[in-house]
Design a protein around this nucleic acid. Structure first.
Length: 1043
RNA sequence: GCCGAAGUGGCGGAAUGGCAGACGCGCUGGACUCAAAAUCCAGUACCCGCAAGGGUGUGUGGGUUCAAGUCCCACCUUCGGUACCA
């Protein structure tokens, strides 16, 4: 009781934000009313002590694996976004248990990663400590919400018993090569060694090159502020996803995972999983498969005065380009290499050398951001060299330009300015020739500006017949394009008259330069030797076949997806179980060894200083005792990079199945029993990162026989983001103009950055707690003519829900919500807000609404005028009346269907309707209430347990043992009971509602029609009219069509 | 630009092609109370009307249908993803 009194005192001092709380506790005289603070811990204790939700491995029941995306335990604690997905899965887990399933529903911590380390560096504590503290907070907060996890299966990615197996899986990747013929990852020992590879060292090097985990010197995203490299996926607009720090490109030797080998299967197997369409599309886009041809362009040796170091040229005297449009080969008028292309040095002519080198330096210095910013203005330099187009032997100039990326395709393109937007823009800029080879369809011509000019002839008074015959001499009244079009089209107009399509076709063939638009679609081939007249699709096939037969090119598929950059220069991550051999002088020999599995886990060394070194040398290199080891008389240096945060989360769903196994990562029999995951719920922000990486690892494990299925997650659902409560804001200018008035109202003003408006001012109510979120209430604003004003002023405001963020100070803390309304209310509200997948704004009033609902449920059964939890006298052992029984069964049916379809919000509204009905009854059937509690239990388990318990107590007895309803069978509904005796049938005349008639249920068509025609309101409307048609849908409606 | 999702009262949202706005919030009125809170009851899309009643309404414009929020076509807006990927 004490805490309640204290709460009361505190909360009433803050009427604006805690209005709800005041109301709750002012009702205290009527004890015992519904007090979640008493009820919820009691049942949480019962579940914990009895291990109610422990998942047995040997149960004969059918199995169901419901997985949440485990959280990163940040210092900020749980966010209201977390319980959204967790509540949804918990409801389903509880529901499935009642349906008789053996449910696997675990939770754990994705605890390695940058933020913990950043925080640790700032505060001077070891990341281990901060991570443990954060986990403790998260665990407490999650337990407080009453989720039915099997806590005996908790995993922590930073636990050596866990990351031992993360390292083991890395070694599986290290031990695997991809057999393209079999489309399968196989042991490295089975890799065929080509006959020209001779000697141990050469064989080892060859193997190392083929492993799925390999080292490579690659241009990486180095983030100086974070002191690490980042994966492409972690860089957004040239800045780090975490922290928004600048990222620069530099070449570094890094560990890579060969995810590109699995691109095709990652793409194909999307067909086999039940995932949201949008997520599948995102993955498809990310993998970015495109089919085309790789075509060899021979270099024109004579014309490019080779510089002295031209040995490469002799060895490889052609440049391969990748194109998805080999059907436009005849339109290639120049070639472009990316500034990083290895052949540039060799082919550049002396006169172009300085310009080329200057451009290369300029391009290298540009960040990705700058490259994108300048995307509209194409830049480039001519190398002086020429290549020979294999289809027509034409010499075309070779340029370098940064619009060609070194990392895609071959890093070189053939430019077809007539049929590619980028090449078109480049050609215009540098006055390179444009040669059309695909004739656009009529539709494209009709949308061209040229067509509009032709159409104006004879209509537009500016186009006099005199000007038409001499357009060149009227440049002062006609614009450039008009002059060009008219002068060029004169002779075609003579030939084809008003057939503008014909005219334009000829213009396109002969004077493509006057078209301001680029045609980049499919069409009919011309200007292409013997292939003219073919469709581009057909020509594509034929030209690829021809190139292949002449060995000048081949069919080729490319992917946007790049290999996964897997190493980080940080302390707080899994160490790589890899040793680098050293020679007598202590220098690396280049040979690498896997750490023996018996030596795993390889733990992080204890170091004084785990800060980044400021350069790409990882902090682990400072741990000299740990760094050097001897094995079999050889000296080694350990790998000092650590794995990225994604490593641990790639396979945690497997470890849950057998979390304490010391011999294998997971028992194969258990994997077979539980996989795949039946339902996986989490945020859409992981659409391409986590979900693609873990599918990749899973497939490697599958190929190597370690998991029994090819896809890990059968069904995936994304919960939508929860936005902050509605906030009112105004622009800085408006704020400054009205400063006095706003100051008078004593409002808090928070300045925040806004994407569109620069900076805006959010108005809030003041609060004693600076972190408190107190938006303006509806009483403080006035709506008028579609606009919103601050009350008693003419200050116009904008109302909007924003993402929750520290800077906006609109973060809702689950602790506060549970404190004020209880876990059941939080759970229920999160589900009641709207569809699980939708983005929804938080509303404090809305939480109060579901809290009121739970109070009504409580008072349905419990007498709140007594001191003990006692049933109301109205609750009796009686048979329910027909209507109540019908509603109960309707509720069971609706909730059952809604749970199967994950429509939690409508399930809750149905239970509200039942409650509203029962509230009106003076005598309430105990059996109905018991059934209702079973239906409510998955959603609001604490209150349901409490009331269920009360309903089962014998009169007078208070202390029966507390036993859970968690495994009571889910109620079934009787379809016969769902039928009402009478039904309301709408009657329409010409499709408009004119009456609603109440008739006996099950009336046939003829009887319904008669009843409708006989209705008092319908009769007069039919008088004197002829009924043309009658539509009767039995049990639904009647529509009378009259003349 | 491209890909995806979505536009319904004052707000969150509900509706297998068949009564648009369930349920909740907010608001209005009433009951209880010395009073308030809580609770309970009634009302609440908009317009005209004292009322009965009538009209209009699901982003816009067309179409299919006896009947369209729902299906088709075109467009607009918002949100999410992505961006020189040849």
């Amino acid at each position: 009781m004490l805490y309640i009194t204290r709460r009361l005192g505190r909360s009433c001092s803050e009427p604006v934000i805690n209005g709800g709380l005041c109301r709750i506790f002012r009702s205290l005289p009527h004890m015992p009313s519904y007090h979640p603070k008493v009820v919820e811990p009691r049942w949480q204790q019962v579940w914990e002590e009895n291990k109610t939700f422990k998942t047995p491995d040997d149960s004969p029941k059918p199995r169901y694996y419901i997985l949440d995306m485990f959280p990163y335990p940040s210092g900020a604690g749980l966010h209201v976004g977390h319980p959204e997905g967790y509540t949804a899965t918990d409801i389903l887990a509880r529901y499935k248990r009642m349906l008789g399933f053996n449910v696997l529903h675990p939770m754990g911590w994705d605890a390695f990663g940058l933020p913990a380390e950043q925080y640790a560096i700032q505060t001077g504590t070891h990341p281990r400590t901060t991570t443990q503290n954060n986990i403790t907070t998260f665990r407490r907060q999650i337990k407080m919400l009453g989720f039915s996890y099997d806590w005996d299966r908790e995993v922590d990615t930073t636990d050596p018993n866990y990351f031992k197996w993360t390292q083991w899986i890395f070694l599986v990747l290290f031990d695997t090569w991809y057999d393209a013929d079999q489309q399968k990852g196989r042991p490295i020992a089975e890799l065929p060694i080509p006959p020209d590879i001779k000697g141990d060292a050469a064989v080892r090097a060859y193997r190392d090159r083929k492993r799925l985990a390999y080292q490579a010197e690659v241009p990486v995203n180095w983030c100086p502020a974070l002191g690490t490299v980042l994966a492409n996926e972690e860089v957004i607009d040239g800045k780090s996803e975490r922290g928004n720090h600048p990222v620069v490109r530099m070449p570094l030797k890094q560990w890579m995972l060969r995810i590109t080998d699995y691109a095709e299967r990652l793409l194909d197997d999307l067909e086999t999983v039940d995932w949201p369409h949008a997520i599948k599309e995102q993955q498809r886009n990310w993998i970015g498969r495109s089919v085309g041809a790789e075509v060899d362009f021979r270099l024109m040796i004579d014309d490019c005065r080779l510089n002295s170091q031209s040995s490469i040229i002799n060895y490889q005297s052609s440049i391969g380009v990748f194109t998805t449009r080999p059907d436009t080969l005849y339109g290639a008028t120049y070639m472009v290499l990316s500034p990083e292309h290895p052949l540039i040095d060799a082919i550049t002519t002396p006169s172009q050398k300085s310009a080329v080198e200057a451009y290369q330096i300029e391009a290298a210095g540009k960040s990705d951001l700058e490259r994108t910013d300048l995307a509209k203005k194409k830049t480039g330099v001519f190398t002086g060299a020429y290549a020979i187009n294999p289809v027509n032997s034409e010499a075309i100039p070779i340029w370098i330009a940064d619009y060609v990326l070194v990392s895609y395709g071959t890093g070189a393109i053939m430019a077809v300015p007539a049929h590619d937007e980028r090449d078109f823009a480049f050609a215009l800029r540098f006055k390179l020739p444009i040669r059309p080879v695909v004739l656009p369809p009529k539709r494209w011509f009709e949308e061209s500006k040229v067509f509009k000019i032709l159409k104006k002839m004879g209509v537009d008074p500016r186009f006099t017949s005199e000007k038409l015959s001499q357009p060149e001499s009227h440049a002062e009244t006609l614009n450039r394009l008009e002059v060009d079009v008219l002068s060029k089209s004169l002779r075609y107009l003579d030939a084809f008259g008003q057939d503008f399509y014909k005219v334009m076709e000829q213009l396109y063939r002969d004077h493509v330069e006057i078209f301001p638009e680029c045609f980049a679609d499919e069409g009919v081939v011309f200007n292409s030797d013997g292939f003219d007249g073919l469709s581009t699709a057909e020509f594509k096939k034929q030209i690829i076949a021809k190139l292949e037969s002449e060995k000048r090119g081949m069919r080729k598929t490319n992917y946007k997806l790049r290999d996964w950059l897997f190493s980080r220069q940080r302390y707080w991550g899994e160490p790589f179980p890899i040793l680098h051999e050293l020679d007598a002088a202590g220098n690396p020999t280049g040979e690498i060894e896997a750490v023996a599995i018996s030596e795993l886990p390889l733990c992080l060394p204890v170091v004084e200083d785990y800060r980044p070194t400021g350069n790409p040398e990882p902090p682990l290199s400072k741990a000299k005792d740990w760094l050097f080891v001897e094995r079999n008389g050889k000296r080694y240096r350990r790998e000092t990079n650590t794995m990225p945060q994604w490593a641990g989360s790639c396979w945690y769903y497997l470890r849950y199945i057998d979390p304490h196994n010391a011999n294998v990562f997971c028992d194969p029999a258990k994997l077979k029993a539980w996989l795949p995951v039946g339902l996986y719920v989490g945020g859409a922000e992981h659409a391409v990162l986590h979900l693609l990486y873990s599918r990749f690892w899973h497939k490697v494990l599958f190929d190597r026989g370690h998991v029994p299925v090819a896809e890990p997650f059968q069904k995936l659902v994304n919960q939508g983001m929860i936005l902050g409560d509605t906030d009112y804001h105004l622009t800085i200018a408006a704020f400054d103009a009205n400063r006095e008035q706003i100051d008078k109202l004593k409002l808090n003003v928070i300045r925040v950055k806004d994407d569109e408006k620069g900076e805006i001012c959010v108005l809030r109510n003041p609060s004693s707690d600076p972190d408190r979120f107190c938006p303006l209430t509806e009483e403080q604003i006035v709506k008028e003519g579609g606009k919103v004003y601050l009350k008693d002023t003419r200050i116009e405001l904008t109302g909007r829900s924003d993402k929750m963020s520290k800077s906006r100070k609109n973060v809702v803390n689950p602790d506060d919500v549970v404190n004020e309304y209880g876990a059941d209310s939080l759970r229920l509200y999160e589900m009641f807000m709207g569809p699980l997948e939708a983005v929804k704004p938080w509303s404090t009033r809305g939480v109060e609404g579901v809290f009121r609902f739970l109070n009504r449920v409580w008072r349905l059964v419990i007498d709140d005028r007594h001191d003990a939890v006692k049933l109301l006298d109205a609750v009796q052992d009686v048979e329910p009346d027909k209507e109540t029984l019908r509603l109960l069964h309707h509720t069971i049916q609706k909730v059952t269907n809604d749970l199967d379809g994950l429509s939690f919000n409508t399930a809750i509204s149905t239970m509200m309707e039942l409650t509203n009905h029962l509230t009106k009854q003076t005598v309430r059937s105990k059996s109905v209430l018991k059934t209702f509690m079973l239906v409510l239990a998955p959603f609001a388990p604490h209150i349901a347990e409490e009331i269920w318990h009360a309903l089962h107590q014998r009169a007078g007895s208070v202390s029966d043992g507390l036993s859970s309803l968690a495994y009571e069978p889910w109620p079934s509904y009787d379809a016969n009971l769902l039928k009402a005796d009478t039904v309301d049938i709408p009657v329409q005349i010409n499709g408009k509602l004119r009456a609603v008639i109440t008739v006996a249920a099950g009336l046939d068509k003829a009887a319904l029609e008669e009843a409708a025609k006989g209705d008092e309101k319908i009769k007069p409307a039919l008088e004197g009219k002829t009924i043309k048609k009658v539509i009767v849908v039995p049990g639904k409606m009647v529509n009378l069509v009259i003349v």
